[in-house]
């Protein structure tokens, strides 16, 4: 019975995607949309073809890898410092009082709105993109970490003290484990916004990467290339968020959510 239900979900899902592609195909062939919009066969054909035949100077693999590298390097740094500052603010009231006003003031600025400033400060190269992604990750992760430290269950703190833990042990064995799921949800959200930000940044200024694919398509009026770029962004985005979720469920096996 459960196997049947599972298969039903899979089959209907596949049917859904197939219907979607059929509608897309029919719309381009039967209506005037076909003049501006390529059909799905062309788009997906072009997408896979781009792995062999370069678009611009690079193949699809390289475009994706370049975008991923641009995103992951500052993501790691932003994550590291975000966790660090979040933990400091959560654990020490003084750090909270010092840093919180700045975080509250700077966080409402969408990462994308930093683009002009980052271009002036760090130029058109990788530097400005690293800066943007760093910002996109840092605030989110710092705040979720902070909330995590504050969500520590007071009775668990008591239990730990009762069993003889000192402050350092309390921090390592109780506060950190409680915070880990929060850090992961922050990392997850930050990953999504980092990916959106890198796409935007590449669209504004770059000479390779998935965002460039799109904006270059727009410049030369090549809709197929735009759609190929969008497919690449969607699939890569899906891949990295799924990987992150798998990692989370491996590392947080004790929570009900992690199952």
């Amino acid at each position: 019975m459960r196997a049947y239900e599972k298969n039903k979900r899979l089959i209907l899902g596949a049917v859904g995607i197939f219907i979607f592609l059929c509608i897309w195909y029919a719309a381009t062939k039967l209506t005037s949309l076909g003049k501006v919009m390529p059909d799905p066969v062309t788009v997906f054909g072009g997408f896979f073809h781009a792995f062999i035949q370069p678009i611009g100077t690079r193949t699809m693999t390289m475009h994706i890898l370049i975008s991923l590298r641009r995103m992951l390097i500052p993501y790691v740094f932003g994550g590291f410092f975000g966790v660090l500052v979040g933990v400091l603010m959560g654990w020490y009231k003084a750090a909270d009082a010092i840093f919180m006003p700045y975080i509250q003031m700077l966080r409402p600025i969408p990462p994308i709105a930093w683009i002009p400033l980052s271009i002036i400060w760090f130029g058109f190269d990788e530097g400005s993109k690293y800066f943007l992604i760093f910002l996109a990750c840092f605030f989110t992760i710092a705040l979720t970490t902070y909330n995590g430290v504050h969500s520590v269950d007071e009775t668990l703190v008591r239990a730990s003290k009762m069993l003889g833990a000192n402050d350092r042990q309390l921090f390592l064995t109780i506060v950190l484990p409680t915070t880990v799921p929060y850090i992961f949800s922050g990392l997850q959200v930050a990953l999504g916004s980092a990916w959106a930000t890198i796409v935007a940044a590449e669209m504004i200024r770059s000479s390779e990467g998935v965002g460039w694919l799109i904006v270059r398509g727009q410049d030369v009026g090549n809709m197929t290339q735009i759609m190929i770029g969008i497919v690449a962004i969607a699939l890569t985005g899906l891949l990295i968020t799924t990987l992150m979720r798998v990692l989370e469920s491996k590392l947080c096996a004790w929570t009900v959510r992690g199952k």
Binding site: V36, M37, I112, W195, A196, V199, A200, M203, G211, I214, V215, G217, Q218, G221, M223, I226, M227, G229, I230, I233, A234, L235, G237, L238, T241
Partner: peptide, 14 residues
């Protein structure tokens, strides 16, 4: 999974 920005090029072309 497609960020909103990515649609800009599609819409501008359309």
């Amino acid at each position: 999974t497609i960020p909103g920005v990515a649609w800009t090029s599609v819409m501008v072309t359309l």
